[in-house]
Design a protein around this nucleic acid. Structure first.
Lengths: 128, 128
DNA sequence: ATTATAATTTGCCATATGGCAAAAGTCAAT
DNA sequence: ATTGACTTTTGCCATATGGCAAATTATAAT
């Protein structure tokens, strides 16, 4: 299991909480049992494509997006030659992150960056 | 099992024969056992997303294409959902913000979103 | 036909998925 | 504290997936 996979549960939960929905409500809307959804969120089960597809709309994801997050689709273009390309491209913006941030108005988006650099400079100060 | 599902096997076999490849060769190239591939072709098993992804390239399919054939993706989704997405497409990601965030590793990017939603939920609590 | 070789199918099994119902937490209002 | 209404987690089980090795079935080549 790689990072993105173990993160999937967190992402799904965060999105559900944000929406906001309870597990039971999501279960009702998606047709997936709440117990299974719970296990998926805490990483005890990995959702199949069928399940992913069912929960996409209620959570406001596009199918592609969820599939990419789940590692079922490779990001963006099809046809990456090597599967052992182990290292994640760190110069890319996580699609989930992009989508979440895009929902915020521009001033909030920039404030987020401001806070981030503030935190980074604080961290730099501490580590010195 | 419905029609389209039982068709998938025929399609895959057709494509393999056309390529041309034997089951064993496809197995070698895809990393999926030939016995499993055989069962998939004759409809005794249904391929998971992981398996589909593995065999896509050797067979000359794009991932999207195979996923759509398998019924995992609804036909013609390219990131933009056709339905009630009013809440989401209204906004765009500031290019500057995108550039700054893209320089951070994925876990930081997601942490930023986590902090943002935390702040938002706190704010919601206050305003109530 | 007979053997050799490659290709496909089958038997068996280990593991993963996912649902249902019961148990365990949460939380507000007495 | 206790009740009652939700929400989440757990126990258990039925089913599906997928690999390995043996068995079967083509396909040639003497």
């Amino acid at each position: 299991m790689n990072d993105s996979v173990s993160d999937l549960g967190k992402i799904l939960k965060q999105q559900r909480i944000n929406t906001p929905l309870t597990l039971q409500e999501l279960a009702a809307e998606s047709g997936v049992s709440s117990s299974h959804l719970g296990r998926i969120e805490r990483g005890e089960r990995f959702p199949s494509a069928r399940i992913l597809r069912k929960i996409a709309k209620p959570l406001g994801f596009s199918e592609d997006e969820l599939f990419t997050l789940a590692g079922f689709l490779s990001p963006q273009t099809s046809g990456v030659a090597e599967e052992g390309v182990s290292r994640y491209n760190s110069r890319q913006l996580d699609p989930y992150v992009a989508r979440m941030l895009a929902e915020e108005p521009p001033e909030i988006q920039r404030a987020v960056i401001g806070i981030l650099s503030l935190l980074k400079s604080i961290a730099r100060g501490i580590s010195k």
